[in-house]
């Protein structure tokens, strides 16, 4: 049998490894099981405050358009069309199905009991220290369908 060799440069492919959704779900379930639900929230808040800090700065400086652009970009990368209602004081995202949940359901990967927190807690933490707040208006655990609202709480 001949030796096989595969040689790839980063530019040969697009960076999109959807199984990472399952890795995150497994991580959330682990935290929940071993450290409790509070640890899940605490971790997601810490991660958001750290990694998405530049986005929160933009939210403070530019208003809700910063979140609108962020969510448009990430759902576009994931290949999901979303509905967006946007004014200066309110941003509402209607997500027919969450690309993460869809990928996990399609591949029969388990979905963490608190996977919803990767939307709810992350959105709330994005708004910390800004005049805005986040509300998860609807969430369906089976599909990840959601209505996510961001609004100006301090005028």
């Amino acid at each position: 049998m001949a030796k096989e060799i595969m040689d790839r440069r980063a530019s040969d492919n697009v960076y999109l490894h959807k199984d990472f959704h399952s890795a995150l779900s497994t991580s959330i379930e682990y935290l929940h099981r071993h450290f409790g639900s509070e640890a899940v929230s605490e971790y997601l808040r810490k991660f958001t405050r750290t990694y998405y800090a530049p986005l929160t700065v933009k939210l403070n400086n530019n208003g809700l358009v910063a979140l609108k652009e962020h969510f448009q970009k990430i759902y576009d990368i994931e290949g999901e069309k979303i509905e967006i209602s946007f004014t200066e004081n309110e941003l509402v995202l209607t997500i027919k199905s969450c690309p993460a949940v869809k990928h996990m359901r399609e591949h029969n990967y388990p979905v963490a009991r608190l996977f919803m927190e990767t939307t709810k807690t992350v959105n709330e933490a994005l708004c910390e220290g800004t005049p805005f707040k986040a509300e998860l208006v609807e969430y369906d655990e089976l599909t990840g369908h959601s209505i996510q609202r961001f609004y100006r709480a301090i005028l």
Partner: peptide, 22 residues
């Protein structure tokens, strides 16, 4: 939603979080 393209920073921050815990 945390996009799959942001998983790696979430993973690295999880390791730090766990180390703080235990």
């Amino acid at each position: 939603m945390i996009p799959c393209t942001d998983f790696i920073p979430a993973y690295s921050e999880l390791f730090k979080f766990l180390e703080e815990k235990g």
